[in-house]
Design a protein around this nucleic acid. Structure first.
Length: 372
DNA sequence: TTTGAGCGA
């Protein structure tokens, strides 16, 4: 058999560091805090003095640009025990240093939670008197908060909106249900999921449209049927059922309304209704390119999710002997741990490309295989 | 009215 070369798909050192501290939430107690929103001139010793007030500080460092030595605006503070770290988070969060409130979180080097925006919510119409601490207190009733902030102008004045990110989607949902529309300091607040700018602007449901797409029609549904049913909602400019060359219905169609409000109402009222025992799906008609784009985005998203899942636990193998098949690969590597997937890459003729993948259930098992 | 930014040795 040819010599097998094994290399990690992602740096294994990074992956195991994540597993080791677990981000300070859940069952992994953490002693390492990330301190952000630092004013540029805040120093190590200022932080040391502040954090030493609540416990035994082992390590403090303001991170700086390698070349210019300018502060990057964040620091790490490590405590000797998790209780001190927890207390620091509780007591010192939002303490002003050089007149700017610091923001403390558990250190978590895995960026996926930060980037994904999961369990992240947006609050607006906040009374100006509600500061970071008040926001934190209000929302902590619903779960563990990873990060929380009231947006402020440079003078520190509240802009009347803010953000809370929870550790779990369920907590975020509960907070939205529990607080949206409630009075906080006599102002009715809006609480909803956080959306990035492009997500709001491109929001599928916000866009006005005239053309309605209907699918899951029965074979026998005709333009006349659609005209009769949709006619209830307003004046239409065209109605069509799409058909094969031989006239057989493709079971979907389009209804174009003169007035977008009528189109929206028709979708709202008729979506999910049953006709001839078929449950209709209605929506805004998308242009072909738009539809393809959406499918593409969805596909890329799911690719990314599987890539994240295998992060650190997936090994890329090359120089495999042609005689090694999927099962042999699994057999060879199962001595190092639990294999969750395995594959020898093959060309279209089924000939091994001499490379493949083995995924373990944990990054630790993968690194064992690397050194083994 | 108002939808951030963010992780080392």
């Amino acid at each position: 058999m040819a010599q097998v070369q094994v290399q990690p798909q992602a740096p294994v050192s990074g992956a195991s560091a994540v597993a080791a501290n677990g981000g300070g939430v859940g069952q992994f107690p953490s002693t390492s805090l990330y301190v952000g929103d630092l004013e540029t001139n805040v120093t190590d010793s200022q932080l040391f003095d502040l954090f030493s007030q609540v416990g035994h500080v082992l390590f403090v460092r303001v991170c700086r640009d390698m070349n210019t030595r300018r502060s990057l605006g964040y620091a790490y503070v490590n405590f000797g025990n998790p209780m001190d770290a927890m207390r620091a988070l509780d007591v010192l969060n939002f303490t002003p240093l050089n007149n700017k409130p610091i923001r403390i979180m558990y250190s978590n080097r895995d960026p996926s939670a930060r980037k994904s925006g999961t369990a992240n919510i947006f609050i607006k119409n906040l009374d100006k008197a509600i500061d970071n601490k008040a926001l934190q207190e209000t929302f902590s009733a619903f779960g563990t908060i990873l990060s929380c902030k009231v947006a402020t102008d440079p003078s520190g004045q509240s802009k009347g909106y803010g953000f809370v990110q929870f550790d779990r989607e369920e907590a975020a949902q509960n907070a939205i249900e529990g607080l949206n529309g409630m009075l906080l300091n006599d102002k009715q607040v809006y609480v909803g999921p956080f959306l990035r700018k492009h997500e709001r602007e491109n929001s599928f449901f916000k866009t006005k449209f005239n053309n309605v797409f209907v699918k899951n029609l029965s074979n026998s549904t005709t333009e006349e049927d659609l005209t009769r049913i949709f006619g209830e909602y307003g004046k239409m400019t065209s109605v069509v059922v799409m058909r094969e060359a031989d006239g057989k219905s493709k079971c979907f169609g389009f209804v174009n309304f003169e007035n977008p409000d009528d189109a929206a109402l028709a979708v709202q009222e008729l979506n999910g209704k049953k006709f001839d025992d078929k449950e209709w799906f209605l929506g805004r008609a998308q242009k072909k390119a738009e539809r393809e784009q959406e499918l593409k985005v969805r596909f890329e998203q799911s690719m990314k999710e599987t890539a994240d899942k295998f992060q650190g636990a997936n090994l890329y193998l090359k120089n495999l002997d042609d005689s090694i098949g999927d099962e042999k690969l699994k057999e060879l590597f199962s001595v190092f741990g639990t294999i969750t997937s395995y594959k020898v890459m093959r060309d279209p003729n089924g000939i091994s490309r001499g490379s493949g993948f083995v995924a373990f259930s944990t990054p630790e098992e993968a690194s064992r295989a690397l050194s083994g």
